[in-house]
Design a protein around this nucleic acid. Structure first.
Lengths: 345, 345
DNA sequence: TTGAAAGCGTTACCAA
DNA sequence: TTGGTAACGCTTTCAA
């Protein structure tokens, strides 16, 4: 490695071009004031030759605003979040913003820490994905911190959350699950089971209540012992499905159709069904939610409820860049996608 | 929303606590100099009461270094990259660093832009994942920019790349593919086909050459028309598999085992096989590479070559934080995971 | 141990 | 249009 060189500063560019720093600043990084064409050209050329790059932090200090959006999510490795993250990154890049990202790994304490760090960064907006556990004590503190951030001029966009004072990207989970229930009944489902995440998660709760409502509208009721509550993850789906099958067996109760409240859970559930010696689709119909990539590459292809996750991520950025006069609630519609995992029976 | 308030500054905290800014800085954000315990406590309490949060940009300007790592990848929505990203985020959080992330969406031009923005940010390190197209003209420019960054004291860590002057996380793609070839021959494979990404991608090329070498060691040669070159994506896998099947049919050539050079390609390929009316495993054995999540939830479960992607992401951060005296090459071993998609035949 | 003051790289105001 | 200079919020050197 060559000897450590310093980065060229704007002052150095200015001196080399024979102008003041003020002029150099105006020429390179633009502003309302304009600069004569020839000087501007000269400065830019000098900057180019010297390999000048603006110091973003210095700009941020001087301007009082950082060209950044921060994204807080549970886990990027989860396709649900990674699709949202991809959307946010694409939206941010369109808007000329950088993205800082942190994963809470589903720990409320870490979440609080990351939010603190985000705030120190003073981004234009903080986007929060993944619903918090309503019952957790940290949730209040979390909301308070977000509010404090908003009060100092930051924008907050929350994805799927209960009522909130912030801009909200509101995925129609209830409605989607309700439509899914209708579709499954139409396909001949009669004896339903649900593999569910924790009920304290808003997203999960909405899906359950929507599903229940949809079934009720078709005259089918969902008994409590038909619902297994487990972790809202792939492994949760696997374990939960095993438990559901065992439980129904013990009760001697029939089971023809299972709704797993997320695709990740459904993937785990599918494997559990096979490990039980049963066939997905043929013996037990199975549906997920999110319509994450790979649902169609499953065998049989997995029925799911589509959420436009990528677009949703982009929208979150646009929302964050809006006027912000009043908190906006952006409803995201869902769509049932029937596939071979829930055949006509 | 409440009226726009300003953020509390260190100066304000100092004044409120009746000390100098210098002391306040030392008390709160630490430094070599120490502060008497009582004053430190008083300052910290005041800061707490006032809701002070350090301004990271100001700190960065003053210190000349930003507590940040930047990650450049092709596409977060791809499980391969999202697993790496998760690892990087976890490693960064351990080290007390923030993460800024950008996706090139496989466009060399965008990649160059994002690198420029990264450089403006002056992060401690830039981590580059996803191999560049060696033949692309932008690649040189890209490397030059990385070098310039390194010369100004930045650390560069590159994941899977050809020879490079930077720290390198070197996934043993050749070796992994070679071992896979052995395993597939041991399972009775004789007539092989490959669904491959672009040969100009280092990662892909290494996998192909390793696979070819492995077959050769078992006395099997891979003819050129047994390899279909397509996009290094799920859709590429789908299309490529269709083409491979059609081609072999035209030639009247047998085909019992297919290697898709990534799991995503393999997933697409599996669906293509089914769409052709054939069964994965039974009619055609199929293996992927990366051992991304969900390989075991496929039906049949997908044989793959495991790369410890998460750990690799964490290691990349540690590498970036190392001394940096000499470029380090960290070899990442792979492991063949045989599953039902490649049964004994 | 504490404080005054210079400095980090910019931007933005105010004159010229 | 251009330049001088204060200001942004913080760290760090140098004295006290």
């Amino acid at each position: 490695m060559a000897a450590q060189q310093r980065q060229i500063t704007l002052t150095e560019v200015a001196r080399a071009a024979g102008v003041s720093t003020a002029t150099a600043s105006r020429a390179i990084n633009g502003s309302s004031r304009r600069v004569s064409a020839d000087i501007a050209a000269r400065v830019k050329r000098t900057a180019e030759e010297l390999g000048y790059l603006p110091n973003l932090s210095a700009q941020t200090v001087a301007k009082g605003a950082s060209p950044t959006v921060a994204v807080l999510l549970s886990d990027v490795a989860d396709p649900y979040f990674s699709a949202i993250a991809a959307g946010v990154m694409s939206g941010a890049s369109e808007a000329g913003l950088m993205v800082t990202m942190a994963a809470s790994e589903r720990s409320p304490v870490r979440e609080l820490e990351m939010l603190r760090t985000f705030r120190s960064q003073r981004p234009q907006a903080i986007i929060v994905a993944g619903s918090r556990d309503e019952e957790n004590a940290h949730t209040q503190e979390f909301t308070a911190a977000l509010r404090a951030y908003a009060e100092t001029g930051g924008r907050v966009v929350v994805i799927t959350q209960g009522p909130s004072p912030f801009d909200l990207v509101d995925i129609q989970n209830h409605d989607g699950a309700r439509k899914l229930a209708h579709a499954l009944v139409d396909r001949g489902g009669r004896d339903f089971g649900v593999v569910s995440g924790r009920m304290t998660l808003q997203t999960n709760a909405d899906r359950i209540s929507g599903f229940r409502a949809g079934l009720a509208e078709r005259g089918i009721s969902l008994s409590d012992d038909a619902i297994v509550e487990t972790e809202f993850t792939r492994d949760g789906g696997y374990v939960g499905m095993h438990e559901l099958l065992a439980r129904r067996q013990d009760l001697g109760a029939p089971l023809d159709t299972v709704f797993a409240t997320s695709d990740m859970m459904a993937f785990g559930a599918a494997t559990a069904i096979r490990d039980h010696g049963l066939r997905v689709g043929t013996d037990i119909s199975l549906a997920g939610f999110d319509n994450v990539g790979l649902t169609e590459d499953m065998n049989p292809a997995m029925t799911s409820v589509e959420i436009p996750l990528h677009e949703l991520g982009q929208s979150a950025v646009r929302l964050a860049l809006g006027s912000g006069a009043e908190p906006v609630r952006l409803k995201i519609q869902t769509r049932v996608v029937l596939r071979a995992s829930t055949p006509q029976r």
